[in-house]
């Protein structure tokens, strides 16, 4: 990242190659649509490119990137919401992107994840899919570590209840 800031184009390419899969999974875990996740990933890299001066070498990289990724995701959500509000007056709504039938090979997991509130789903995806630590998630989401743990705990509880309800072993 430091080389990227210094104008090293190869370092920029390496960073994109190394971190794109992880960031893609973060988006996919939330939007459940491959095409949209690809769009968000591209949007994120452009945003990172224009805000790369805000990264400091002394600070951890992943929370910085995930904080921007989170912002990209929120902006996309707002855009969709505003568009939906405007289009309500139309006679027929255009087809909105729908979640892939089996985006990640496990429909049950996707369905269960969709049942969680946005904030809990986000924390769970960062912890379990992206592999961030509690401290890193706290930095990325602007919450305290305690709040992250509480959200994760509530998400586990809800998933446990849902799994029990569907007859799966917990």
């Amino acid at each position: 990242m430091a080389n990227y800031q210094r104008g090293d184009a190869a370092a920029a390419g390496e960073l994109v190659d190394a971190l794109s899969p992880q960031l893609f999974r973060f988006f996919l875990g939330q939007v459940r649509n491959r095409e949209l996740a690809d769009d968000l990933l591209q949007d994120l890299w452009l945003r990172i490119h224009s805000a790369r001066h805000t990264y400091r070498e002394s600070e951890p990289l992943l929370p910085w990137m995930y904080a921007i990724a989170r912002r990209v995701r929120i902006d996309q959500y707002r855009r969709n919401k505003n568009r939906a509000n405007r289009e309500l007056q139309m006679e027929r709504l255009p087809d909105a992107p729908v979640p892939d039938a089996e985006p990640a090979g496990n429909l049950d997991f996707e369905t269960l994840l969709a049942e969680l509130p946005e904030s809990q789903r986000e924390v769970l995806v960062m912890l379990k899919v992206s592999g961030l630590s509690v401290e890193e998630v706290a930095r990325a989401t602007g919450c305290s570590a305690g709040s992250v743990k509480q959200k994760a705990h509530r998400a586990y509880e809800k998933l446990r209840t849902l799994l029990k309800g569907s007859g799966h072993a917990v």
């Binding site: 875990g29 996740a37 496990n106 996707e110």
Partner: peptide, 17 residues
């Protein structure tokens, strides 16, 4: 809780990357 392998192995569109 562990995330399923499908999501853990998902990769972005190589052309877009």
């Amino acid at each position: 809780f562990e995330a399923p392998e499908g999501l853990m192995n998902a990769t972005p569109d190589a052309t877009r990357v």
